[in-house]
């Protein structure tokens, strides 16, 4: 880990200022469960680390309006223990998939959304787009865990967050603070598929921080997340699906289906949503939805299985919600 200077401001404005481009290369530190590994691997080499730990305004989880406000620095453990969050089944199911109590205790919700891809080429120093001597390593390399959607290149990694698909399916937004003030956007808009080495996988400016996540009321929605995970021990899902369904007369009237760990961004599938509308919510409509979601999948040399796993995740999530 390269040495750095450290600052822990007490409000978001000073944090945004501390992140000013004049300060050199900066990084935001929340729980550190991802950032510290990135620093140790020299994947990120900031000269200044700005810690959010002293900004009390970023903490806490509470009801707000009919919905839920999650402070950026609320931990996964906070989320799981929160009464206010109890109605958001799919979000809690996703949070439970982060199985290590130590990660739950330290990792924050915003950190989960903004954690960097776990692609092993990226983590071993070959860059976000995983290249060696200009050549893309993933398509002909070890790509069993890589993307099956949105993988036309140059990005092949998968977004690692399990909370993001759930939050997107719940219609959540994030508040982002920068030196010029706050802006609000949908969680989905936090992400992008980078098109060059110059781009990151999220849309934040280096001096912006997420301050809170707002989830609208889930009343009237049945929600569920299903994760396909090999081990109970701290492990990454191979595929997840979060669904939110509104039912009318026993039929799906409105559906949101978002897949995780299958594409460089959380993957919302309008195909699956269309397939569900007007159907009863059960495993058989779920299979159809899963297949629809995977119709456009373009698996790489080693990850064909993920198409099946994602299909099953959708099927089971729909079954659970139904």
């Amino acid at each position: 880990m390269q040495n750095f200077e450290y600052i822990a401001p007490i409000n978001t404005l000073s944090a945004a200022q501390a992140l000013s481009p004049d300060a050199g290369v900066t990084a935001v530190l929340a729980g550190g469960t991802d950032l510290l590994s990135l620093l140790k691997q020299h994947v990120e080499t900031p000269t200044r680390v700005v810690s959010l730990r002293n900004i009390s305004a970023l903490r806490g989880i509470s009801k707000r309006g009919g919905g839920l406000r999650i402070g950026a620095m609320a931990t996964v453990e906070d989320l799981l223990g929160s009464k206010a969050a109890a109605p958001y089944e799919s979000l809690l199911q996703a949070a439970r998939g982060i199985t290590a109590p130590q990660v739950r205790a330290m990792g924050t919700v915003a950190g989960d959304l903004l954690q960097r891809p776990r692609c092993w080429y990226f983590r071993n120093g070959y860059g976000l787009l995983a290249k060696s001597e200009g050549k893309a390593l993933v398509p002909s390399g070890e790509n069993r865990y890589h993307a099956i959607l949105g993988n036309k290149g140059p990005a092949y990694f998968v977004n690692a967050s399990s909370l993001a698909p759930a939050l997107i399916s719940l219609g959540a937004t994030v508040s982002v603070a920068g030196p010029e003030g706050e802006r609000e956007m949908s969680v989905a808009d936090l992400y992008r598929i980078p098109s060059s080495d110059a781009e990151r996988e999220n849309t934040l400016a280096p001096n912006e921080i997420v301050t809170e996540i707002n989830v609208p009321s889930a009343s009237g929605w049945s929600t569920a997340t299903y994760e396909v995970r090999q081990r109970q021990l701290l492990d990454w899902p191979l595929a997840t699906a979060s669904v939110a369904l509104r039912m009318r007369g026993g039929k799906v009237s409105d559906a949101r289906v978002v897949l995780g760990h299958v594409a460089p961004i959380p993957w919302r599938s309008s195909e699956a949503e269309t397939a569900l509308k007007g159907k009863a919510a059960n495993e058989s409509s779920g299979v159809e939805a899963g297949k629809a979601a995977m119709a456009a999948a373009t698996p790489l040399s080693q990850n064909k299985a993920k198409v099946q796993l994602a299909t099953v995740a959708v099927k089971r999530a729909v079954g659970m919600a139904g």
């Binding site: 530190l29 550190g32 469960t33 510290l36 730990r53 290590a100 109590p101 130590q102 205790a105 330290m106």
Partner: peptide, 27 residues
């Protein structure tokens, strides 16, 4: 592991188990 993936460094901070390899001392 020094990467938040094995638990050998577990200590309890403010009542919760944490990976001490993944927390800065200053924090």
């Amino acid at each position: 592991c020094d990467r938040a993936t094995c638990g050998a460094c577990t200590v309890i901070v403010d009542g919760s188990p944490v990976y001490s390899c993944t927390m800065l001392a200053i924090e």
